[in-house]
Amino acid sequence: MIPSFINPDDHRGIALWWIIRLTADDMGEEEYQEFRRWWLSDPRHSEAFAVETGWRQQFQALLTPEIRARCAALCAEQVSAGKPRSRRMIQYAIAAAVVAATVIGGFVLRNGGSVSQSYATQTGQSRTVTFQDGSVAYLNTRTRIRWLGGTQERHVALLEGEALFEVAPDPAHAFHVSVDRSEIRVLGTRFNVYRKPSGETLVTVLEGTVEVRRPADAQHASWRQVLGKDQQATYSAADASPVVRQTDALRAVKWREGAADINNQPLSEAIEELSRYTDQRIVAADPRLRSITINAILQVHNAHESLTRLAKVIPIAVGENQNVITLTYREPAISQR
């Protein structure tokens, strides 16, 4: 049955419907005969069906890995916008005893035979993924990536979280990482990409050179930035260009050792960092806490323990109640350093 929302005079629309049904693998003989009657009963139907068929081939051919990656990112956005991350759901997922990270799904794309595969980590997990070209991605906590590479191109979409990429050198095939609407392009190098939940993206280069660019869209002009070793670019969707600074790139990948390097940053930065690895909520309500800066390397996998250690050097007291860690201001004592 042709759905009623399609106008009976819209031959292209009906042709589209039949193509969807023909490729859907649950079309019975009766429905198939209905299609045949429609197809052959009127030259306009036959022509619309042929034109629609050609258009779909044309469309598939125009779907470059870059466009696919950007569309994939769109879907990720939608999931996080539509369903706010529910704490209970996360706990449920962990209760399901997922010890190692999970491959969400692998499948073969219809077009071109390239394999697209998703990889993810849960809260507090990390994982190493080796792609078919030999490149490696190390995934940090709460991270989702999708490999879209084929034989011609190498392409990864970072949908959420943070990953360190070690790209196998191959001058003939650039390696692309899409983050939201921006794209990072390299030939063979090591670099770290962190897509913060706030929408900010940090790209840090450990070796070699990478190019970060964002194509223009309706609201924004395009920009392009080349980064060398120990350079870090920070940008968000609305920025006209990235902010680039010199950094010790190894600091940015301390997470590989289960640590975070907090270098003269406010306490809130340390809390944000620790929160990535735990489902406990860290609450710092006292306004006096805002003025505290921290210069330390924190172990990230036990937030309570790390904060308790910090409490020895900064004026905070740490309380823990089930899933909430509470920080309060502690008047500097005699033993203050």
């Binding site: 466009i67 696919r68 569309c71 769109l74 879907c75 939608q78 697209s116």
Partner: peptide, 26 residues
């Protein structure tokens, strides 16, 4: 094709999810 993304943004969320995941991501 560069406008595809903007076009997809205009779609109702379920239509968009179906289209992107099935047609574009396979």
């Amino acid at each position: 094709m560069r406008h595809l993304e903007a076009i997809l943004r205009e779609l109702p969320p379920q239509q968009r999810a179906v289209y992107v995941r099935y047609r574009i991501l396979g």
